[in-house]
Amino acid sequence: MHKTYLGAALLWTVGIAVSCLVKMSTFENKVISLEHKDKFIHCTFYFGFTVLWYLALVKTDKQKMRLKVFIAAVLYGITIELCQGLFTADRSADVTDALANTIGSAIAITVIWLISKIKK
Rank of each mutant, 00 (worst) to 15 (best):
M1T: 02
M1D: 08
H2W: 01
K3N: 11
T4M: 00
Y5A: 02
L6Q: 06
A8E: 03
A8I: 00
A9N: 02
A9K: 05
L11R: 00
G15V: 03
G15L: 07
G15C: 08
I16V: 06
I16C: 00
S19E: 05
C20S: 12
L21Y: 06
K23Y: 14
M24I: 14
S25A: 13
T26D: 11
T26G: 05
F27M: 12
F27S: 10
E28M: 11
E28Q: 12
N29V: 13
N29Q: 15
I32P: 07
S33Q: 15
H36N: 15
H36T: 12
K37L: 13
I41L: 15
H42A: 14
C43S: 15
T44C: 14
F45P: 05
G48C: 09
G48M: 10
F49D: 07
Y54K: 07
L55M: 15
L55Q: 14
L55F: 13
K59N: 13
D61L: 03
Q63Y: 10
M65Q: 14
R66C: 13
R66M: 10
K68A: 13
I71Q: 04
A72G: 04
A72Q: 08
V74H: 03
V74G: 01
Y76F: 15
G77M: 04
G77W: 01
T79F: 13
T79M: 09
I80Q: 05
I80N: 10
I80H: 02
E81L: 01
C83F: 10
Q84N: 08
Q84M: 06
G85S: 01
G85V: 04
L86I: 02
L86T: 02
T88E: 03
A89E: 14
D90R: 11
S92W: 04
S92G: 06
S92Q: 05
A93D: 06
D94S: 09
D97C: 10
D97I: 05
A100K: 04
G104P: 08
S105P: 00
V111W: 04
I112L: 11
L114C: 08
I115N: 01
I118M: 07
I118L: 07
K119A: 09
